[in-house]
């Protein structure tokens, strides 16, 4: 049994549109955009580690709200995501 992946959702990551399967997480959209998620305290680029909401490495800004866990958030049409530059 496969969840329906027929539809796609378009979001913007650092201003650039990215299409992901409906139901994909924001973390996936960030990685598909060729980006990483947060900038660490000492300036390193970080990307998801645990994939399940406990490590907080996947934090990004979603629709202006900073420090959101991208792996626990599903993409919605027209979401504005800003990640590590």
């Amino acid at each position: 049994m496969r969840d329906s992946a027929a539809r796609e959702v378009t979001v913007r990551v650092n201003g650039r549109p990215v299409s992901v399967p409906a139901g994909a997480s924001v973390a996936v959209a960030v990685l598909l955009a060729g980006r990483t998620c947060r900038t660490s305290v000492t300036g390193e680029a970080r990307a998801p580690l645990c994939g399940m909401g406990t490590c907080f490495e996947c934090r990004v800004t979603i629709n202006g709200e900073a420090q959101r866990r991208s792996c626990q958030t599903l993409c919605q049409p027209d979401m504005e995501i800003s990640a590590h530059e």
């Binding site: 992946a5 992901v20 399967p21 139901g23 994909a24 997480s25 973390a27 996936v28 990685l31 598909l32 990307a47 998801p48 580690l49 645990c50 994939g51 399940m52 490590c55 792996c71």
Partner: peptide, 15 residues
């Protein structure tokens, strides 16, 4: 570099 379950979770989420 991800968790083993971590990468699996990302793939399930559409990666």
């Amino acid at each position: 570099v991800m968790g083993a379950g971590g990468l699996q979770a990302l793939v399930k989420s559409g990666l």
